[in-house]
Amino acid sequence: MQIFKPLYERAILWARHPRAPALLTGLSFVEAIIFPVMPEVMLAPMCVANPRKSLWFATLSLMGSMAGALVGYALGHYAFEALKPLFAALGMLDGIEAGIDLVKAKMAESPWAVFTFLVLGGFMPIPMKVFTWASGIVGVPMLQYVLSMLIGRGKRVYLLGIAIRLGGARAEAALRRWIEPVGWIATALVVALVGWLIWRAST
């Protein structure tokens, strides 16, 4: 049964829509706060559909993510306790609390240990909101937080944009051919990493 290939074909059609750049920026913003779908799901087809604008699309995604990261931090800092029931209902509470415990552990070492952890975390297929909320709740210093979000998410979107820009038609053909196994592998990685975070927090 194919799931990811039909979604990919639909995403390519959406990627050519005149409002696609605005939708990408909005998706990146909301994903950093609460939305479960990573912006790369839209960024990759947009870059494939128009490789010459790959770096511009990556920049738009990064701008949306950074704005969302600031909002997520503020909400985590000021509103987490009030919103706990909502996260529990959405099935996100365990992941966020696991992230909180990890960020706390790094904060006990030093603010720059948190910076390194968040930079590395930004390259993992873990929802960005886990780190944005956890950082706000723990109170990660703003300098280290903003720099880590900028580098962590920036390297993800720009590496993707550059790879597709350089690959051109070959990148599109390869992505179209391998989208199904890649989609399942990415899904398995996300599930495994979330499970590891929960296990790490409970031990």
Score class of each variant (00 low, 15 high):
Leu189Asp: 01
Val194Arg: 00
Leu175Thr: 04
Ile198Thr: 10
Arg177Tyr: 10
Ala49Glu: 13
Ile96Pro: 00
Gly136Pro: 13
Lys53Ser: 09
Val190Asn: 01
Tyr73Gly: 05
Gly91Arg: 05
Thr116Arg: 06
Leu86Asn: 03
Gly183His: 03
Val30Tyr: 05
Ile100Pro: 01
Phe35Leu: 13
Gly95Cys: 05
Met42Ile: 12
Val146His: 05
Ile198Asp: 07
Ile3Trp: 14
Leu147Tyr: 04
Met142Arg: 13
Tyr158Asn: 08
Leu118Val: 06
Ala88Met: 09
Trp14Met: 14
Ala58Cys: 03
Cys47Ser: 14
Ala134Leu: 07
Leu175Met: 14
Met63Asn: 00
Pro51Asn: 04
Gly26Trp: 04
Met124Cys: 14
Pro127Ile: 09
Ser61Val: 04
Ala32His: 07
Ser65Phe: 00
Ser28Ile: 11
Glu31Gly: 06
Asn50Lys: 10
Gly161Trp: 06
Ile151Asp: 07
Arg52Asp: 12
Gly72Met: 07
Pro125Leu: 10
Val157Thr: 10
Glu31Ala: 13
Leu75Glu: 08
Arg19Ala: 14
Thr59Leu: 13
Ala58Gln: 02
Pro18Lys: 07
His17Phe: 07
Ala134Lys: 11
Glu81Ser: 15
Leu189Asn: 04
Ser28Leu: 03
Thr187Ser: 12
Ala67Pro: 00
Arg200Ile: 11
Ala74Lys: 11
Leu86Met: 08
Gly136Trp: 12
Cys47Val: 11
Gly154Pro: 05
Ala89Ile: 00
Val114Gln: 03
Ser28Trp: 08
Gly152Asp: 03
Leu24Asp: 01
Leu90Lys: 03
Gly167Arg: 02
Phe80His: 04
Leu83Asp: 02
Ile162His: 06
Trp178Thr: 10
Phe29Ser: 01
Met46His: 06
Pro125Glu: 13
Lys84Ser: 07
Ala201Tyr: 04
Ala82Gln: 11
Ala32Gln: 03
Gly68Glu: 02
Pro39Ile: 06
Ala108Trp: 06
Asp101Ile: 12
Val191Arg: 04
His17Leu: 05
Glu172Cys: 02
Ile96His: 00
Pro36Ala: 09
Lys106Gly: 01
Glu40Asp: 15
Gly154Ile: 11
Val194Tyr: 08
Val37Pro: 09
Met42Trp: 12
Val138Tyr: 13
Ala89Gln: 10
Gly139Lys: 14
Arg170Glu: 13
Val119Thr: 09
Tyr145Gly: 07
Met63Pro: 00
Met63Gln: 00
Ala82Leu: 13
Gly64Cys: 04
Leu197Arg: 09
Gly91Thr: 01
Gly64Leu: 01
Phe80Asp: 05
Asp94Gln: 12
Lys106Gln: 15
Ala88Asn: 05
Thr187Lys: 00
Val138Lys: 15
Trp178Pro: 10
Phe57Asp: 08
Met124Tyr: 03
Gly68Ile: 06
Arg170Tyr: 01
Leu193Asp: 06
Arg177Lys: 15
Ala82Asn: 06
Gly167Lys: 02
Gly76Ser: 03
Val182Ala: 15
Val37Gln: 05
Gly121Phe: 10
Val194Gly: 00
Arg177Thr: 15
